[in-house]
Each structure stands twice: as structure tokens, then as C-alpha cells.
């Protein structure tokens, strides 16, 4: 694969962003694409990619875990309760410990049982959502004290995002853990034969995803100033959007560090929904664009041939 071809492929995600920007800029020059507007979109993307980074580690191993949304929510609820009582010293440890504990439960269930993870996660989400409604007894949403709101304001809100993306970049490309995750995703049998302790690294991936979910929960709660319970599998459907960003990243994995393309994926989704907003349309029309874009992207990135089986 020649150098120039590889650079071209590495630039493709950025081209997608520029393309979306140009299209909406032409349609709605006045309202769309002001520098402050773009900065806000980047800020939102930075928060969403916290969850997407963690999710990427699990998706690379071919597992669709829908409980990540519920883990983020419940760890945010308990963290806020502790935070309102003790302050930062209460909030961060409590939410991280909760998220790790819940990820441990879902990981052991999904690794040890020979049942498809998707089905197991549906059962777990039902239970976690019932738990979240019980936790926020009688109030619509749990507000957070003002001292935490600072983490939701401009300069500070970016820091956890930047730190986590850098850490994940290093983990994915530089660390033994990242290499083994890709190895397990590529072929679990051969990975086991070469002495990789598959269950250990799968559990580690889940715990890292739990950690990302906890950080996402904290930052999102500070950004939106309160955390609400979820019902009717709402937390499961909220995971689909970061999953789309991860699919975007997997498509360009060979040419660009996946963590950058996860951020680009989130930014792309926000750009489209903001573009539609500026045109005065319902921002939920964005789902149509996201659905179609994902079909096109996955179609080009997978090279399966006539008799390959894709279930």
C-alpha cells in the first residue's frame, strides 16, 4: 500500500467533515458554521466521545453491549448524591466505583455465558433502569450543586475529553492491552493459542469502558446540571449514537488512530444535526442522514466476498 494512498485514506474522515460543513454552509450561510457555533459542537462531541472511546474497546471484540448507557446513568446518579453530600471527594470515587462494579457484572455474564451478549444486555438494562427509577424517588431529575457546574463550562469541560482521548490513543496503539484487544477481535482461537489470557483482557476492556462511562456520566451531569432516570429502554437507545461513531472509527482503523476518528464521528453527527437545526427543520431528521451515511460507510469499508457469511 503506497504511502500516498495511505495518507489519502487517513484524510477521508476529515474530508467527510469538510463536505458536511460545506453543504450546510451553502444552504444556510447566515446561521450555520459560526466559529463559536463550531466550538460548541466540538465541545458536545468531546463529551459524547468520552462514552464512544470506552465503547470502541468492546465493539472491537465484536460485542454489542447495550448496558453502557445505563451504567453511565446510574454511576452519575450515585455520584451526584455523594457529590451533593460531600463534594468532589464524594462524587468521583463513588461514580467510578459504581461503574466498575456494574461493568464487572455485565462483563462476567457476557464472557462466561455462551449466550449472545446483545440478549443478555437487554435483560440487564431492564433491571438497571428499574433501579435508576427507584434511586430518584419522587423527583423528575436529580439536580447537582453549583460547585460542580464549573466542570460543565467552556475551558474545563474539554479537559476530561482531551485527556481520555489521549490516554485511549496510547492504549489502543502503544500498549500491550490495545494490541491484545485487536488480536482477540481478529481471531479469538489463535489469540488463545498464542497464550493471550482472553478472559482477562476482555474483562479489562469492559472495566475501561466502565471507567469511560463513569467519566462521561460525571461530565455530562455537570454540563446539563442534573441527571434523570430512564424508562422504556431509553438508556439502550441512547447508546446507539456513540455506537455509530465507533462504527465510523472501525471503518478507518487501518489508516488513522481509531480514537481520532471516534471524535470525528461524534463531531460529524453533531454537525449534521446542527445543520438541520439551522435550516429550521426538526433536528431528529438527522437520524435519516446518520442511517444513510452509515450504510454507505460500512458498505465501502467491508470487503466481504461472494460466499463470506455476515450474520
Amino acid at each position: 500500500m503506497s504511502k500516498s494512498k495511505r495518507v489519502l485514506h487517513a484524510l477521508m474522515p476529515f474530508l467527510a467533515l469538510v463536505l458536511a460543513y460545506v453543504i450546510f454552509k451553502i444552504i444556510e450561510p447566515a446561521r450555520f458554521g459560526s466559529p463559536s457555533g463550531l466550538f460548541l459542537l466540538l465541545q458536545q462531541a468531546m463529551i459524547q466521545s468520552l462514552l464512544a472511546c470506552g465503547l470502541y474497546f468492546i465493539l472491537t471484540m465484536g460485542v454489542f453491549d447495550l448496558t453502557v448507557g445505563a451504567v453511565a446513568m446510574i454511576s452519575a446518579i450515585l455520584g451526584t448524591m455523594a457529590g451533593n453530600a460531600i463534594g468532589w471527594a464524594g462524587m468521583i470515587p463513588v461514580s467510578i466505583v459504581t461503574a466498575l462494579a456494574m461493568s464487572m457484572i455485565s462483563s462476567q455474564l457476557m464472557i462466561r455465558l455462551k449466550a449472545p451478549p446483545m440478549i443478555i444486555s437487554v435483560g440487564l438494562v431492564l433491571i438497571y433502569e428499574a433501579l435508576s427509577t427507584k434511586l430518584i424517588q419522587g423527583k423528575y431529575s436529580l439536580p447537582i450543586d453549583d460547585e460542580f457546574r464549573i466542570l460543565g463550562q467552556a475551558p474545563w469541560v474539554l479537559i476530561p475529553g482531551i485527556v481520555l482521548i489521549l490516554v485511549s490513543m496510547v492504549l489502543i496503539s502503544r500498549s500491550k492491552f490495545g494490541l491484545y484487544i485487536h488480536a482477540i477481535g481478529s481471531n479469538t482461537e489463535i489469540a488463545k493459542n498464542t497464550g493471550i489470557n482472553v478472559t482477562k483482557y476482555q474483562t479489562l476492556a469492559w472495566l475501561f469502558c466502565g471507567l469511560c462511562a463513569a467519566i462521561y456520566g460525571i461530565v455530562n451531569t455537570c454540563y446539563t446540571s442534573s441527571v434523570a432516570y430512564a424508562q422504556n429502554m431509553a438508556s439502550a437507545t441512547s447508546v446507539f449514537k456513540p455506537m455509530m461513531a465507533c462504527m465510523f472509527a472501525t471503518a478507518f482503523r487501518k489508516y488513522l488512530n481509531p480514537m481520532i476518528s471516534v471524535l470525528i464521528g461524534c463531531f460529524f453527527l453533531n454537525l449534521v444535526s446542527n445543520g438541520l437545526l439551522c435550516m429550521g427543520l426538526e433536528s431528529s431528521l438527522q437520524n435519516v442522514v446518520v442511517g444513510l451515511a452509515m450504510i454507505v460507510i460500512v458498505r465501502f469499508s467491508n470487503k466481504s466476498r461472494k460466499y463470506d457469511v455476515s450474520k
Binding site: 435519516v288 446518520v290 442511517g291 460500512v298
Partner: peptide, 20 residues
């Protein structure tokens, strides 16, 4: 030849967008 989870998820996204 898309994985069925992703293909049907895309259709779900498209329909919800249209419905609103």
C-alpha cells in the same frame, strides 16, 4: 452484506427521523 444488527439499526434510525 452488512451485519444484520447494523443494517436494521440504520433502518430504525431512518424511520424515526422520517416519523417526526
Amino acid at each position: 452484506k452488512m451485519p444484520s444488527f447494523l443494517a436494521t439499526l440504520c433502518l430504525q434510525y431512518i424511520i424515526t427521523g422520517l416519523m417526526t
